[in-house]
Design a protein around this nucleic acid. Structure first.
Lengths: 199, 199
DNA sequence: TGTACATCAGTGAACGCGCGTTCACTGATGTAC
DNA sequence: TGTACATCAGTGAACGCGCGTTCACTGATGTAC
């Protein structure tokens, strides 16, 4: 069970071909199984069928690997949000897409928001974070016009906070069951309250 | 540095007196230093100046200790929210108090929302969580009246999500600096958007 | 087309570590009579 | 008031573990001439 039964050592060439990609994919799968960002490089190597020292050639150390996961996650998130906003032009749908990303790509999401696992000064990670940030509250800021910047920023943060909090609470099983079972539908219902007064 | 220099082994009686309390307090301090819920029972015991096997008498195992931290945290949160609501009657201030709790009592907050560290079926923890939950969206539900239960629940979840997300993002250093430096003030500004339409 | 050689990718053994849990034990406390 | 004894709280040694990193190495690849 520990190592991939599909890999016969005799079929395996000395050079893997795309070990970096394989390690990243296996890491995401491992994180999905463990539920947190805590994975072991040795277990990861066993999965991929490779020496446990091999990953150091691609990522340096463990934090380097998880930094790469976080970087990729931010790019995936940015792309998902961009697509939804381009298609619908709706802030609410962007928020719902954020929640969908958190749930469907939970391993990425988890690692993205555990900075103690990263090399936080990594320039590629920083760039990827900025890209996803811009997709998050860029559109709100833009639509509200340049003269009301402060309020627009706050509104963007408000929406991001709500989507983020809702995703976190759902992932931890903290939402009451009466809300239903589909987290994206819940997100639409709840996010309505950012833009509409319930009073 | 590893063990408390104040404790001279000759002053220390065989029985500690209140080891349970001392372990909990030291655990909270350790978590504050490490920034996450990952602490070691051995390091904890060193701090308190006690054998590393001693904690098992009070908490069983490591998850038991962290379950107790989470339980206490939920009670503290419930009390803080209750007091603010009793004093002000304001939902917004309750939300701001939630964010303040997350920041001022960060170690508790962190452990409370990492269920993989707990015995999630612990009855005391369950009760404590319900108590803090009730303080969170009970007031909203109550004020909105029994006839609009679904909407009221959604509004409560919306406010909780926003406060929770905002706290998380602030703790991870993800908020843009333009918002200012005081997280509770930021919370008031941002939470306004749950109850007021920015359009 | 062939050869020498630098570079790259992966190996496998070794190092050194701290950890959580278990266990038989001992010292202290408190209670029944 | 004194004594026996059960219970509780803490000890310290041992077990067994998996881990991340380092290092000299080897096999494979690709490029210069």
């Amino acid at each position: 069970m520990a190592s991939d039964p599909d890999i016969d050592p005799r079929d395996r060439p000395y050079h893997h071909g795309d070990l970096r990609r394989a390690l990243l994919d296996a890491a995401v799968r491992l994180i999905a199984e463990h539920g947190t960002g805590e994975i072991s490089l040795r277990e990861l190597a066993r999965r991929v069928g490779v020496s446990h020292a091999a990953s150091s050639h691609h990522f340096g150390d463990k934090a380097g690997l998880l930094t790469a996961v976080a970087t990729e996650g931010n790019h995936l998130l940015a792309a998902a949000l961009h697509e939804v906003y381009a298609d619908t032009g709706s802030f609410l749908e962007v928020g719902a897409a954020y929640v969908r990303f958190a749930i469907e790509r939970r391993p990425y999401f988890t690692v993205m928001y555990r900075p103690e696992l990263h090399h936080t000064d990594d320039p590629e990670l920083t760039a990827a974070k900025q890209a996803s940030r811009e997709m998050l509250y860029g559109p709100v800021r833009q639509r509200m016009g340049p003269d009301r910047d402060a309020t627009a920023l706050e509104a963007g943060i408000a929406a991001w906070s709500m989507a983020h909090g809702l995703a976190m609470l759902w992932l931890d099983g903290n939402l009451p069951p009466q809300l239903g079972e589909d987290p994206v539908e819940i997100a639409r219902l709840v996010l309505t309250h950012v833009f509409t007064s319930p009073r």
